[in-house]
Design a protein around this nucleic acid. Structure first.
Length: 559
RNA sequence: GUCCCAGUAGCUCAGUGGAUUAGAGCGCUUCCCUGCGGAGGAAGAGGCCACAGGUUCGAGUCCUGUCUGGGAUACCA
């Protein structure tokens, strides 16, 4: 990547300057290279000279000049300037930029990828909703975040497993079974109340209706467990269907029950006990989390003898490590933020390194309808499902999936977001995603029109890229060539929303190019320029498609 | 009480310690179709970057405190 190359070159330059005696000896600070806010100042800038002023006891401007003097030549470096109070500004070489079109064309499916992962195994765990009801808008953010983070990791050289962790046993599931039983018996004319803390949502009526159609009166004799299994099956089928609509496919569905049946939970309990990190108090077993840097100890085995949720979670994460994942990303909602330090502490207590485990906490979505906040509860059956919202924002020309992903990828997970349902429906057609998709469709249209005029890809394949010198062409090229860095940064920071910002900027630069540079020339004398610009269009199309695909959105050829 | 996240344009939100000028979308005002898709483009109005200190040559960005909002503080998962 250009940025990394620059850092290396600048470092070399500074060291050479020191060796030559042009700079005094001192320890170089970490070199930061980034795009300046003002594009007139070049493509990359570093403040190294200012940072070095104190240790070098030298004026920043002079330091900068010495570094520049020793900066090795590189094909991508066009111009190097020193600016007050000591910035080193680097502008990419225009000829080199134009040649990048060929690089992009040669790698239509992989342009932008890099290899920080080097084939190591990564796992992203997300959604992980227990099958007690349909996926709601509350789950949507984690779903889109997790899926896009997984895509980013794949694009940066990780071998990625998308994993959904769930629990289909325990008290909640028993209540779910009982609630379904009540709904089934209703159909047989036997009316009973939904149990205390049971599930009141209408979706169980639909499951009941299907069961009745299949089993009829025989339902009266079935045990609760039968209903539990049927409810889980039906709800999971629904969840998978919803995920499919969002374009999400998991590689592994991991059942918490397996942790018990395989003895992993027990093994972890035993190991904690013998490690001295567990102790007995008030009839329960506690994790000595205070010895692991946390504020308070936590119960891991209740006085009833049952483990708390922490125990299987600890065993699960241990198993993740044992399965050979080098990098594990957990996506949680803000309501879980207090639990994962305990779990990681437990994993560390068992002697495992948790450095490879990263946790992304996303804030909550506040739903607003008719100006009122909508409070959701799966148990009470009060929620807005992803399916319902998708249906509302989907029209003939508009994919609800793209709108939803765009909305959820336009914000940092650290920000809580307000989602106005009425506005979402009304404004779905104004969503910025269409701006990007429109750009893609527009490029396709140009390429199509060129082909119709007998000017297909084979006719412009040898277009002379050195003809691409217009400022709008170069501005577009700059944005295109930064895709690898954008992907690398978004992956490294686990911040997929950066892709969304980039996509809009890229589209803006294409639209500007379209405005300023006529691609299809009516004048035969401009035929060579047309060929070069068609190659640029194709490369731009590839770049736009790459970023849309990474975000899980479609790149339509027509709209 | 303690802990986590946030507070930036009318609304929803970006913003990587740097450059006399803080951005986008929506909404609002005014323009631009004799040429490749106007789902586009150009211009404009609209900002004590919550507040107060601090660090720094330099702070929307880092630190401390205050205020406001959301979340968490279980032998629920």
């Amino acid at each position: 990547m250009i940025r990394d190359n620059l850092i290396t070159l600048i470092q070399q330059a500074a060291k050479k300057a020191q060796k030559a005696g042009d700079l005094p000896p001192f320890d170089l600070p970490a070199i930061v290279v980034g795009p300046p806010k003002n594009p007139e100042h070049g493509d990359y800038a570093t403040n190294l000279a200012m940072q070095s002023a104190r240790p070098a006891k030298m004026a920043p401007m002079l330091i900068a000049e010495q570094i520049v003097k020793h900066l090795p030549a590189a094909p991508f470096i066009g111009q190097v300037d020193v600016a007050h109070p000591g910035f080193i500004n680097i502008t990419l070489d225009a000829g080199w930029l134009a040649q990048q079109v060929a690089v992009i064309q040669a790698n239509p499916a992989t342009f932008g990828n890099s290899d920080a992962g080097q084939g190591r195994k990564a796992q992203v765990e997300f959604v992980s909703a227990n099958p007690t009801g349909p996926l709601t808008i509350g789950h949507a953010w984690g779903a889109v975040l997790g899926d896009t983070i997984a895509s980013l990791l794949q694009a940066t050289g990780w071998e990625v497993t998308r994993e959904y962790y769930f629990n289909n046993g325990g008290r909640q599931m028993r209540l779910l079974g009982e609630s379904l039983q009540v709904r089934c018996l209703e159909l047989l004319g036997d009316y009973r109340p939904i149990p205390q803390d049971g599930y009141q949502g209408d979706y169980l009526r639909w499951v009941a209706a299907a069961l009745y159609a299949e089993h009829g009166n025989a339902l009266a004799d079935k045990e609760v467990d039968f209903f539990r299994v049927k409810a889980v099956d039906a709800i999971f089928a629904n969840i998978r269907c919803t995920l499919d609509r969002l374009g999400i496919r998991f590689d592994v569905y991991y059942n918490e029950l397996d942790l018990y049946e395989s003895g992993r939970v027990n093994a972890a309990v035993q190991a904690l006990a013998s490690s001295g990190y567990a102790y007995q108090k008030e009839g329960a077993t506690w994790l000595r989390a205070t010895d692991l840097g946390l504020k308070q100890d936590r119960v891991i085995i209740k006085s009833s003898g049952e483990p708390t949720y922490r125990m299987p979670d600890i065993a699960y994460h241990v198993h993740k490590i044992q399965r050979g994942f080098d990098y594990m990303v957990d996506i949680f909602g803000a309501d879980h933020h207090a639990t994962w330090p305990d779990v990681l502490a437990g994993v560390r207590a068992l002697g495992f390194d948790t450095d490879g485990i990263k946790v992304i906490i996303h804030q909550f979505i506040t739903l607003v309808r008719d100006g009122q906040e909508v409070k959701m509860s799966t148990r009470r059956g009060e929620f807005v499902t992803i399916d319902a919202l998708l249906a509302d924002i989907t029209t003939e020309t508009i994919s609800g999936k793209d709108v939803m992903r765009s909305v959820l990828l336009s914000r940092s997970p650290d920000s809580s977001m307000t989602f106005d349902l009425d506005l979402a429906v009304k404004q779905s057609a104004d969503n910025p995603v269409f701006y990007v998709q429109y750009g893609h469709a527009r490029i396709c249209s140009i390429l199509r029109k060129a082909a119709e005029e007998g000017f297909g890809p084979e006719a412009w394949a040898d277009g002379d890229l050195t003809l691409l010198t217009h400022p709008s062409e170069l501005a577009l090229l700059r944005r295109m060539t930064s895709l690898p860095e954008v992907i690398a940064a978004a992956a490294e920071q686990l911040a997929p929303h950066q892709l969304n910002t980039y996509a809009a900027e890229l589209a803006t630069h294409f639209h500007a190019f379209y405005r300023d540079c006529r691609v299809l020339a009516s004048n035969p004398a401009d035929r060579e320029l047309s060929k070069a610009r068609l190659r640029l269009c194709e490369a731009a199309r590839i770049t736009v498609a790459r970023v849309l695909t990474l975000m899980g959105m479609s790149a339509p050829e027509r709209m």
